[in-house]
Write a protein that binds this DNA or RNA. Structure first.
Lengths: 321, 321
DNA sequence: GTGCAAATTTGACTTTTGTCGAGAGCCGTG
DNA sequence: CACGGCTCTCGACAAAAGTCAAATTTGCAC
């Protein structure tokens, strides 16, 4: 794509307006266009990441509670969205915060792994645009036709689009009907390369799923409610990138997991920054499992969840002493 | 400085407005303050770097001319401000561009070396605020009481202030009256550490000075016009961080240079990214010397200067063939 | 060339934002 | 405790930015 003249104009308008601080009508007269056009160009500039407006997330890290959670669970960084707060929809607040944190963690040239779920898609949806060069977004797990609009490949592609980055999709289903087929598929060069490339990521973005009938795996038909219940009694504690993990944060030994095409937990752990975002309060145990399995170094949660984590940590300390 | 309640409010207002996209009156009602206060908080948020508005400098790197200059002189990156352009004051444009480029090059945790001069001070003055954590700004050369408001230490401190970074000043004059004194001073632990720390910088920001009666060195009384003229006939071609360099970009062997307290050129060359900004068209030869001495890897200049550079490169190529 | 659809641009209008002086609250001081 | 000096806050007005339907241009197939 060559630099179209329109693009040039957007750049110039954005430059004069944001860098030089001219008013829209001044920009308009400099470029010999109407002010309305300038307004439109500026909107496009914001939407395409030519200008970047980012707010510091300091407010949320400076929180004493965040520090405590970091210390108690040995995490690199924790952000806590105040839930009692002044917003209509508190769960959106976590996603907005997560999007800001995510953008703050991304560096030029990074390779980013993205998993799938309602949370991740919400983040992708509200994330502002940026113009990162040389960034690659890779999908962490296979695809699943979802009844909703957030399929794994869509999460990946949407985030790639927002960052002006390259998106790398997984050309495989998340779960297959037999273990043999899954094994063969994993051996396919295309898939194998994709799986191997996951460990090279600099940053991962995912949430953790609950093991219940409301799970996406159930809603998307990958598992029946009864199967899910069965897995739970076998020790299933959470869902990471489409895989079932136990309370220790390890892959549960079950047929389902063997039929899944997804990132190996070892590959995920090889990623330096693992950003986990948890919106729902019901995901307390799944989150504990993920932390236990060292699947998360950076965490974005709500104030209530943070409270529960600290309470849990305190109880554990007391018992130990 | 503890987090004052006002600061907290600024953060919240900025967060609701910029991250959540609420209108000012909505923010006002959420926080139970008047809309006028919100507007004021938002201005403060922008001024203190709590929110960051940055425009992509792509427009200027994508320029064909910039690419040509990069290739012709083996530079890592070149930005060219269009001088024929739509702006009242073209020389400001270079400084504004330089400030944007500078902010784009700075990374968290960086150590930044800053020299001194009208250009550098102009950049510091128009640079927008940012909230970089763990950034250190160090002064590249000794101090000089200037008749203007841009003393070396002020350049350093102003940039540090804008970045919300730590500023490290040089507690020494730029030039001493005897070589012996300069030598002793350089051996002082405080000064020695400072000088040694320069090579550890990740980024340097400086301009190059001309060898004439208009030079800062003359205006600030470090050198008499006649002395400057004398140095010129001895091969002086430019001024870098208060030192005289020859056409090859090496330190000129002269008494003045031996009396100066400033970064060694070898230390400067050890800095990965050396951002040089040249506003005045008269600094053509000095710039060539600086490039010859590999004192610049990243360059911000005006279109006219770029034209002269390319013309020069072309002539040199022709002569060679 | 001609006609049509899509994209772009514009002027007029509405909404949102910036600004300023007045007034309220706060604190150390005489 | 009254007094200035200080900062913070507010209401009202002016300025700027966003929006939309209509007009214009552009691109393209025929």
């Amino acid at each position: 794509m060559a630099i179209r003249p329109a693009e040039q104009l957007i750049h110039k308008a954005a430059w004069l307006y944001y860098a030089h601080g001219l008013r829209q009508d001044e920009v308009a007269s400099q470029l010999n266009i109407s002010r309305a056009s300038v307004a439109m160009y500026l909107r496009k500039a914001r939407e395409t990441g030519i200008v970047n407006i980012s707010t510091s997330t300091q407010l949320f890290t400076n929180d004493v509670m965040a520090r405590n959670v970091e210390d108690a669970f040995g995490l690199d960084a924790v952000w806590i969205a105040p839930e009692n707060a002044y917003l209509a929809d508190p769960s959106t607040d976590i996603a907005v915060l997560a999007a800001s944190v995510f953008l703050e963690l991304v560096k030029k040239g990074d390779r980013i792994g993205v998993a799938w779920g309602r949370t991740v898609y919400t983040i992708a949806d509200i994330m502002s645009f940026a113009d990162l060069q040389d960034v690659t977004v890779v999908q962490l797990c296979g695809n699943l036709g979802a009844p909703y609009s957030y399929r794994p490949d869509q999460c990946t592609m949407e985030i790639a689009r927002r960052l002006n980055a390259k998106g790398l999709n997984f050309y495989a289903p998340l779960v297959l009907s037999t273990e043999e087929l899954a094994k063969s598929l994993r051996a396919e060069p295309v898939i194998r390369d994709q799986l191997a490339g996951i460990a090279d990521c600099d940053l991962a973005l995912y949430s953790v799923g609950a093991v219940d009938a409301d799970s996406h795996l159930v809603k998307c038909g990958a598992l029946l409610p009864a199967e899910m219940e069965g897995l739970r009694s076998q020790g299933a504690a959470g869902v990471i990138a489409g895989q079932i993990i136990d309370a220790g944060g390890e892959v549960l030994d079950c047929s389902y997991n063997r039929r899944v095409i997804s990132a190996e937990l070892a590959s995920l752990r090889a990623i330096e920054k693992r950003l986990m975002v948890v919106q729902e309060d019901t995901k307390f145990e799944p989150l504990l499992s993920a932390i236990a399995g060292r699947l998360c170094t950076h965490l974005v949660i709500g104030a209530h969840m943070a409270g529960r984590l600290l309470q849990y940590a305190e109880a554990a300390t007391k018992k130990a002493s």
